[in-house]
């Protein structure tokens, strides 16, 4: 018996969802980005109870349910704790253009920080990436006060 694999094509309605928002960054992101723009320093914030340094800075340490306290500089060097190499195109929100593939993406624990942060790795070859490798943040020369001020993390030899 012949299998009927053809179905009648149903109507499909193309819909584009376009909504606009304005997010209040809040006092913590405000200072994080201001510091990054002005001095090129990456800042974390310390929980007074567990003393872990959280990056990005935030008002509350969720684990201790306590207000965070002292601001401390972290990085710019750090250690890769997870990595991948991306082979599909991604439209970079800050440029509106596709990012060249492949590129490396990782979780990087900055020196002095508890949290690891997501960012782009300069190295995109999976054979040259490994957990525990040392990297350093490369910053834009003309910084604007957003996450794009950190261009990527480059591999360093120590």
């Amino acid at each position: 018996m012949k299998r009927n694999t053809e179905r009648e094509e149903l109507l499909r309605i193309p819909i584009q969802m376009k909504l606009q928002y304005r997010f209040p960054a809040g006092a913590h992101y405000e200072r994080f980005f201001r510091e990054l723009k002005k001095t090129g320093k990456i800042m974390g914030i310390k929980c007074p109870e567990c003393e872990r340094v959280l990056v990005p800075p935030r008002p509350v340490c969720g684990e201790c349910f306590t207000r965070t306290g002292e601001w401390v500089e972290v990085g710019p060097k750090g250690t890769v704790v997870a990595h991948t190499s991306i082979y599909f195109p991604f439209i970079d929100g800050s440029t509106g253009k596709p990012r060249p593939i492949p590129y490396g993406a990782g979780l990087i624990q900055l020196d002095g920080a508890y949290s690891a942060i997501n960012h782009i790795l300069e190295e995109g070859d999976p054979d040259k990436l490994h957990i525990g490798m040392r990297v350093e943040a490369m910053l834009k020369e003309k910084r604007e006060g957003n996450i794009g001020d950190i261009l990527y993390f480059k591999t360093i030899e120590e």
Partner: peptide, 12 residues
Amino acid sequence: DKGYEDIPETVF
């Protein structure tokens, strides 16, 4: 407009 603080701050 509570734009002077972020949502986590208000909720906390």
